[in-house]
Design a protein around this nucleic acid. Structure first.
Length: 389
DNA sequence: TCTGGGGTCCTAGGACCC
DNA sequence: TCTGGGGTCCTAGGACCC
C-alpha cells in the first residue's frame, strides 16, 4: 500500500516565537540573529535595536516574512542584511524559548500521529499511513492542534514519501496545506528549480546548470548514465531517483547522535602568536563546554578533534582517536592540543572548534532535552553527579 | 558592508590484519 | 622469490541541511 508521509515545517519559526513575546512587532520586518539579550517584554517600538546599528559577524537565523520581502534570508550576514533592510528590528536568538515551543508543537502533533521523525528544532516528518482519517482533514487537524498548543502556524505537505513531502510543505507557505500524489509530479514538481530537492545544494546546482539542467523536469529527462558519469555512481543514481520522485526512506523515530561539538567565531581575527593567551582561554572554555555537553547528554567520545577557520575562511580539521572514550574536559583539552600541533598556525584565525565523535553511552547527569528519552530518576542524578566531582 | 553554530553523510587514501 | 584480495579503522575534506 502507498504510504502517507507528511513534512511539517513551522513558519518563520524563531521570528514567530519572538512575535508571541513582542506582539507589538507584528507587521514589522524582524530579523533574528547575533548575540545579546532582547529588550523587556512590553518595550516600545523605539526601544528595539535596528539592523542598521549592528556591527559584527553574525548572520540572520530567521527573517519575518516582512523582512524577507526586503531580500533578507536566513544565513545572510547581518551587515549585508542591514544594507537591504536598515530599519528592520534585530532580536538576538533565544534558543531556550525556541526549544520550549519546539517541544510544544511536537507534542501537539504526537497527540494525533505518534510516528514522528525529528529534523531539527522546527520541522518533522510524520508517518500518517496507519493513522485513521482522510488526508486533508487529518492534516488540518494537526495544523489546528499545533496552533492551539503554541499560537503558531505551520505548513504541511502530505505525499507518498519524505522527498516529495519536504518539497510539498514549502509550496504554499506560510500556513500551507499541500497534498500531492505521483500524478502531480509533472505539474507541481517538475517545473521547480533543482535546488528545491533536499540534497541538491549550491555546488550541485551550478554543475547541473552548466549541463543545461535547471528544473527538476529537465533533470528527470536526463539519462541516468550521464548523471552517473558526471556525479559518480551514488549521487548520480540518487539525482535520477529524486527527479522521478522516488524515495523509500523510512521514518526514523529515534536516532543516536554521531558527534557533539562546540565552536566559536571570534569578534576579530586572532593571531596564533600575538593572541596566544586569548586563544588558550577560548580553547579551554570550548573543551569545558564540550565536556559538559557530553555529560549532560550522557555520552563519551573516543575521537576528539579541532576545527580551525583562517581569516580567508579556509577551514581545516585535525582529529585523534584515543585509547578510551572520555568526557573529562582536561583530557579533551590535552587531545585538542595534540591535534592543534598538526595544524598550520601561520595565519590569523577567525574560528576555533572542538568535537567529540565515536560516541558511546556514558553517565547522564540530567534528563536530556530529547522528548524521546526517558527522564532520569532523581536518585540517579546524585550518583552521577558524584562521579564527576 | 562577506559568510553562525550545530549537525549528517560521503569519499578517498593509507595502515593494518587475515 | 614476489606477490592476492578483502575488511576495518583512522584521518581529512567537502557538500549539504536546519
Amino acid at each position: 500500500m502507498e504510504r502517507r508521509i507528511a513534512h511539517l515545517d513551522m513558519d518563520a519559526f524563531y521570528a514567530s516565537v519572538e512575535l508571541l513575546r513582542y506582539p507589538q512587532l507584528v507587521g514589522q520586518a524582524v530579523v533574528v540573529g547575533g548575540r545579546g539579550r532582547g529588550p523587556q517584554i512590553g518595550s516600545k517600538l523605539t526601544d528595539f535595536q535596528r539592523l542598521q546599528n549592528y556591527v559584527g559577524r553574525g548572520v540572520a537565523t530567521t527573517a519575518s516574512y516582512e523582512a524577507r520581502k526586503l531580500g533578507v534570508h536566513s544565513a545572510m550576514g547581518l551587515m549585508k542584511a542591514a544594507a537591504l533592510a536598515p530599519d528592520a528590528i534585530l532580536l538576538p536568538a533565544d534558543f531556550e524559548a525556541y526549544h520550549h515551543y519546539s517541544r510544544l508543537f511536537k507534542a501537539a502533533v504526537a497527540e494525533i500521529a505518534p510516528c514522528i521523525e525529528n529534523r531539527g528544532i522546527d520541522e518533522i516528518y510524520i508517518d500518517l499511513t496507519d493513522v485513521p482519517g482522510e488526508t486533508v482533514s487529518l492534516a488540518q487537524r494537526i495544523k489546528d492542534n499545533v496552533r492551539q498548543a503554541t499560537g503558531l502556524s505551520c505548513s504541511i505537505g502530505v505525499t507518498p514519501n519524505k522527498l516529495l513531502a519536504k518539497i510539498a510543505s514549502e509550496l504554499e507557505k506560510p500556513d500551507g496545506l499541500t497534498i500531492l500524489t505521483y500524478e502531480d509530479l509533472p505539474t507541481r514538481i517538475w517545473p521547480l528549480s533543482v535546488n528545491k530537492i533536499n540534497g541538491v545544494g549550491p555546488k550541485a546546482s551550478i554543475r547541473l546548470e552548466a549541463m543545461g539542467i535547471r528544473t527538476i523536469g529537465e533533470l528527470a529527462r536526463t539519462p541516468v548514465d550521464l548523471l552517473v558519469h558526471r556525479f559518480g555512481k551514488h549521487y548520480g543514481q540518487w539525482l535520477n531517483d529524486a527527479a522521478q520522485g522516488r524515495d523509500d526512506r523510512p521514518i526514523v523515530m529515534v536516532r543516536e547522535p554521531k558527534s557533539i561539538s562546540c565552536e566559536t567565531t571570534f569578534e576579530r581575527d586572532l593571531d596564533p602568536r600575538r593572541d596566544r593567551a586569548a586563544l588558550t582561554g577560548i580553547l579551554t572554555s570550548l573543551c569545558e563546554r564540550l565536556g559538559q555537553d557530553l555529560v549532560r547528554k550522557g555520552y563519551l567520545g573516543k575521537t576528539i578533534g579541532v576545527k580551525l577557520r583562517y581569516e580567508d575562511f579556509h577551514t581545516v580539521t585535525r582529529d585523534i582517536t584515543l585509547a578510551n572514550p572520555v568526557a573529562d574536559p582536561s583530557v579533551i583539552l590535552r587531545a585538542a592540543r595534540d591535534c592543534l600541533k598538526r595544524a598550520p598556525l601561520d595565519r590569523k584565525l577567525r574560528l576555533l572548534g572542538v568535537r567529540a565523535a565515536s560516541l558511546s553511552p556514558g553517565n547522564r547527569v540530567s534528563a536530556a532535552d530529547s522528548p524521546n528519552r526517558q527522564p532520569q530518576r532523581p536518585s540517579n542524578v546524585g550518583e552521577n553527579l558524584r562521579l564527576f566531582d
